[in-house]
Write a protein that binds this DNA or RNA. Structure first.
Lengths: 209, 209
DNA sequence: GTCTATAAGTCGATAGAC
DNA sequence: GTCTATCGACTTATAGAC
């Protein structure tokens, strides 16, 4: 079976690589090719070192993957928290929600290979690695739950929505964009606006509601 | 690295296995464990035969996977088409849309291991297998585009929505439920209603719109 | 901090007996 | 239609030189 695909495996070389260099390369390859197709040999080759050298920086492949998963969540968490907290104190629920959605999509699609690698490979890594990444994930989920609960308490959200369920739906829908979004067809900001429009107003022409 | 996880690998035995038996087992394992963790040896073990015997029914692992991917799409396609076509001729856009959403979710979460396996492993299989599955996927996507375009032409959808973009968003959001939906926490029908409510009405309390 | 060399295991796939 | 046995390639990980 040829699981190598048509993958460009250009090496970069240039000076020392180090722990961070290995992680950067690994995150990019995981985002591009998924977990199963990326071996330590491939990471090493692209990073410009030999496979055995990786074990000077890491104790196992799992350690590399977990580090990338955690960093990816923290990156999108920071982006989202900053976007929300920098809104004016009298900002409307809609404005705050749009800022959070935009921040999540920007981290995922534009800023961080680590965030996109997380979404891409989380369902492919060994269960033990998923479990180890869970606390970091839970923290980000709690941030969303806190925001949504606040908007609901303000009366801005419909009172019959379940916060946990809405969060799962929202983040799931946003993360799914990773599979098809093409920056050549439109900007992340335009995408974020479209998503916010749907969640805020729905897709049907208003007639009775 | 232990990628075997804590997976129950119970065999079933019971009479002849055959091509269909292998496919059923493989689809279930792919859905439960993803692509990378499921070897031909594991499929054979659960099916109650030896690994070499699989090659009497299939020429390669890719052939097994492609068959499962195609069947999965056709299953959800059939479910969705039937649900839409069985609506009354004067059914409202909202009713039709709710029926399509419900059918997609039911196929994915309740009816077919093949459909859920498709969503779960499509991004993990070799590029050649993805390419081979594309025509079947395109056909299902065209079914949604046709439905949405019809609703838009009727004036039921907002006129500024892009059909292709809406379809990507809708299917992406629905497929994402596979990662967290738990039938013990609620029915597929209730889930479908919640999703339809969001897409139809949005999540904000109406005040000015 | 990176190298070479290799151990120990798993994988997809094939050949031939029954 | 299923079995046994095996090949060759690939993987993570380790040991020790430099």
């Amino acid at each position: 079976m040829s699981n190598l695909e048509t993958n460009q495996v250009t090496q970069q070389a240039r000076g020392p690589v180090g722990r961070e260099g290995v992680l950067d390369v690994a995150a990019r390859l995981f985002r591009e090719q998924g977990y199963g197709s990326v071996s330590l040999r491939k990471i090493a080759q692209v990073a410009g070192i030999k496979a055995g050298s990786i074990y000077y920086h890491f104790g196992s492949k799992d350690e590399i993957v977990l580090s990338i998963l955690d960093t990816g969540i923290m990156a999108v968490h920071d982006e989202m928290r900053l976007a929300v907290s920098s809104q004016a104190s009298d900002a409307s629920a809609e404005v705050i929600l749009r800022a959070a959605i935009t921040a999540h999509l920007r981290a995922l699609l534009d800023v961080s290979d680590y965030s996109s690698a997380n979404v891409r490979i989380f369902g492919q890594v060994p269960q033990s690695v998923r479990d180890a990444n869970l606390p970091t994930r839970r923290s980000y989920e709690a941030e969303w739950d806190s925001l949504l609960a606040r908007l609901k308490a303000n009366g801005a959200l419909k009172q019959d929505v379940d916060v946990r369920h809405l969060r799962l739906m929202l983040i799931g829908a946003l993360n799914a964009t990773l599979e098809w979004f093409d920056p050549k067809r439109g900007s992340v900001e335009a995408l974020a606006k479209n998503y916010a429009d749907v969640f805020v107003h729905g897709i049907l022409e208003k007639q009775d509601n």
